[in-house]
Amino acid sequence: MIEESLRSLLNRARKAVTDAKNMSDIDALDIAFLGRKGELADLMKQMSSAKSEDRPKLGAMANEVKTEIEKLISLKRDSFAMSGLQKQLDQEREDVTEPGIKPAQGHLHLMNHAIRDIEKIFTDAGFVRVRYPEVEWDKYAFENLNMPADHPARDEWETFFVDTPPDAKNGKMILTPHATSGTARILSEKDLPIRAINISKTYRRQIDLTHVPMFHQFDGLIVDKGLNLTHLLGILDYFVKSFFGPDRKVRVRPYHFRFTEPSFEVDISTDSKMGKNGWLELGGAGMLHPNVLKAAGIDPEVYTGLAFGWGVERTYMMREGLHMDDIRTLYKNDLRFLNQF
């Protein structure tokens, strides 16, 4: 009897599980068949009425039925769970080619990108970045740089003058036309040896497609004992390779600046990005003129100074292959421009 009932229970359970439509049907079946007050439990209660010699067999059979039903229910559950997850996953599927949500995006000005790059290259090489007044005395911008009053070389600088009486000791007040005034300042501090890079806003009376009245220059300076021309070439080479790339070559040509002797113009080899093959003018360099060291009270017989410097705007544009029809765009502050960098 019990045997019959167990068999029938298993068959009914098998059918019911197969027919179950969802997870709650299965939960109900689980309770109905296997629960504390379920059908299997009922049958087990009847076990006492069976013959004692049959009991072990019936017991084993009941266990088998239980295990089988549990297995059926578990499988069905898994299958429901699976298809439920499938559904969820399907519902959650998105067009992954849509752009993501970006954090608010700030932009540094192109010039500060440039200044940072240049600063990094030199600080890596043991230089310290320094900064000196932009509104400056004639003394530091010219006089101490071996450009006495009325020297025609001064004309090349197209200097802005401040409308204020000159100082007896320092001369006229001006906007510095070159970062080299910082060189005169560093020297006057006489904290030797010196290894510094001065990046500064500079000012000249010029505005057109290729000139802005405020621009930036960097001026590097090493003052130490025993420096010579080969060291200057070494620094130029280091900068050019770090800034423009390892394939670039540097060459120097004789030039004339009052504050250096000898003086050079520095060229770099071009690449296809720059549109032509050959050499492009980069900036100026030289050995500090003995008079410049003397003006700062440094003995030129003991110390040698190497200096180099050029325009940040021009140098950076050259590297990036950025071509601006009008350099003034840099300082027009159109957000369509600023947001690009």
Partner: peptide
């Protein structure tokens, strides 16, 4: 002329 990088560290910070 050869080019020789003058290694060193700035005294000033």
């Amino acid at each position: 002329l050869p080019s020789v990088f003058p290694a060193g560290v700035s005294k000033r910070k």
